[in-house]
Design a protein around this nucleic acid. Structure first.
Length: 375
DNA sequence: AACGGCATAAACAATG
DNA sequence: TCATTGTTTATGCCGT
């Protein structure tokens, strides 16, 4: 592979830190996200500024640039307490569902969310790996979403979401920290994220229940005491890949509106539905794992969400993000993976999917309820 | 044309 | 009793 742009020999982190193009806290967050996904972030390059010593940054305890806004995303549990990198990655284990909200430590405000609507394509991902770049997810042609007229909020929020009920239910359940929701909460989640259903005919709730009952992907679990009537619904782990594939079958916004741009350039009042096409498109291309893609998505989205599009706009037109991974991560041929579970069905691809799904769902404003108190 | 997936509607039972 | 939840059946649309 030809040397990547901006690749240069031994640029010490200390040198770069003198003029970091991004707040250190944000860099730490990106590094933590990548670390939490079980990978190694070797270097991050923005506009030629290379940060390649994340230990230094990550260990820094200074919070001088910590201006955490009031969180609009109420994340339960261990905010800022990301799981260790050696987290159990067994696909059959549900533990990741419990504690792997990849961006749990990142607080997003409503403004952060709204700012994403003008994210541009000025950030270009380049993966330092032997695998080909995920061209399917990072289109090369330049886009000009900023110049595009904003979509009328009403048309984006009151049109029926292009997702099947099973996908909506899946998203709702996956958004819950415990990955289990009563029907009522599923209703609430759908309404919250797809305002269309606020005024939709009542039949849709019947459809939700119908789906829950009929779809083998969803299972009832014993109702928690005090829950009242009804049960908790969960996603059957064995059918999870089926639901992910269903995501891939969902219609994606027409090409003229550029999916990524549309995903982030959506309704002013309710950006969430506009983000999900992004997720759908991401998952639709999940036939093979695309190492680095989820890191890119998370990093780029974090950039825009956390600091607004200005962070990206202020970069030179040729600015680009480079997220490189340790070379040893690419040695899939040398031992058949990490040997930490992996399962035989989803394999690494499933990990990528779920990490991206989690990250994007979180970023999409999924409101996490505090986990139930241990009994 | 057949088939599968999906949405929608409706009826009904169970439950709090 | 009523509202909610859960199950089941039926029907039609749409894409393959």
């Amino acid at each position: 592979m030809a040397p990547m742009r901006g690749e240069r020999g031994g640029s010490p982190a200390r040198g770069a830190r003198a003029s970091l193009p991004l707040p250190r806290r944000l860099i730490r967050q990106i590094a933590r996200h990548v670390a939490s996904s079980g990978r190694s972030l070797r270097r991050l390059e923005v506009s030629g500024k290379v940060i390649d010593n994340f230990d230094d940054i990550g260990d820094a305890s200074d919070e001088s640039d910590l201006e955490t806004p009031q969180p609009a995303v109420a994340c339960g549990g261990n905010a800022g307490n990301l799981p260790p990198a050696d987290h159990d990655d067994d696909l059959t284990s549900l533990s990741w569902l419990q504690d792997r909200n990849l961006l749990r430590g990142i607080n997003l405000t409503k403004n952060d969310m709204e700012d994403t609507k003008t994210i541009t394509s000025q950030v270009v991902m380049k993966v330092a790996s032997k695998t080909p770049p995920p061209v399917a997810r990072v289109p090369s042609p330049p886009r000009t979403p900023c110049k595009a007229p904003p979509s009328p909020p009403a048309s984006t929020t009151l049109t029926k979401p292009p997702y099947s009920f099973s996908c909506l239910i899946f998203m709702a359940i996956e958004a819950a920290p415990t990955r289990a929701l009563p029907v009522k909460e599923i209703y609430a989640w759908i309404i919250r994220h797809f305002p269309y259903f606020k005024h939709a005919p009542q039949g849709w709730k019947n459809s939700v229940r119908h789906n829950l009952s009929l779809n083998k992907c969803f299972h009832k679990v014993a109702a928690a005491p005090g829950l009242g009537k009804g049960s908790l619904w969960t996603v059957d782990p064995q059918h999870r890949s089926t639901l992910l594939q269903a995501f891939g079958r969902q219609p994606v916004p027409p090409a003229e509106s550029e999916p990524e741009a549309a995903a982030l350039d959506g309704g002013k009042n309710a950006p969430d539905p506009q983000l999900f096409p992004y997720l759908a498109r991401r998952l639709a291309a999940d036939a093979r794992p695309q190492p680095g893609a989820d890191e890119y998505l998370a990093a780029a989205t974090v950039l825009a969400m956390k600091y607004g599009p200005a962070v990206l706009d202020q970069l030179p037109p040729a600015a680009h993000l480079v997220i490189s991974r340790c070379a040893r991560d690419e040695h899939s041929y040398s031992g058949g993976g990490e040997g930490e579970g992996g399962g035989e069905g989803e394999g690494e691809g499933g990990c990528e999917e779920r990490r991206t799904a989690e990250a994007l769902l979180n970023l999409a404003g999924v409101r996490c309820e505090p986990p139930p108190a241990p009994s």
